[in-house]
């Protein structure tokens, strides 16, 4: 994983990814997705490089990175648990699951655990609203989360 100050690697990465998206109209979001896909976050040091590659201002890139909830400016944990907090999951006991999950994983909602093992992130609906509470665990959908499922998720992320 590239660290924040690693601009050498970063410019190589942007040089490689930018041409794939620079010609698209409105290519900034696809490029940011691609960067995050590769290195897990969008480092602040990448902002001027992206701005230059797309011929837009740094302010525009910064504005977009900070507007969208998906883009991370710091690395995520090795595993990412996105737990749904929206109404239909709440109707199925989501709030209690959220508390239990925080306790079991040892990390607060919206944070990454100190040892970098796992991030717990809120998501507002996964479109699985009749079978909640739901989560995406490293991109894999998990439904009807109960105490047993929390244990399995915790074991899977090594917590």
């Amino acid at each position: 994983m590239t660290s924040d100050g690693d601009t050498g690697d970063l410019s190589g990465l942007i040089d490689r990814l930018a041409p794939l998206h620079a010609r698209k109209r409105g290519g900034l979001l696809p490029l940011l997705h691609a960067v995050q896909e590769e290195i897990g976050f969008v480092p602040d040091a990448a902002v001027p490089l992206i701005a230059e590659a797309l011929n837009i201002s740094r302010a525009e890139v910064h504005g977009v990175v900070t507007f969208y909830h998906d883009f991370r400016r710091t690395p995520a944990g090795r595993h990412v648990v996105k737990l749904c907090r929206a109404e239909s999951c709440q109707a199925r006991g989501g709030a209690a699951i959220e508390k239990a999950m925080q306790r079991r994983l040892g990390v607060a909602m919206g944070a990454t655990r100190g040892d970098g093992a796992v991030s717990l992130e809120p998501v507002y609906c996964l479109g699985l609203c009749a079978i909640g509470p739901n989560a995406l665990v490293d991109g894999r959908p998990v439904a009807r989360i109960d105490a047993g499922a929390i244990e399995r998720i915790a074991a899977g992320v090594g917590a």
Binding site: G93, A96, K99, A147
Partner: peptide, 10 residues
């Protein structure tokens, strides 16, 4: 709720 079998004290 029937779904919230976990304790919610904290």
């Amino acid at each position: 709720g029937l779904f919230s079998t976990l304790d919610e004290k904290d």
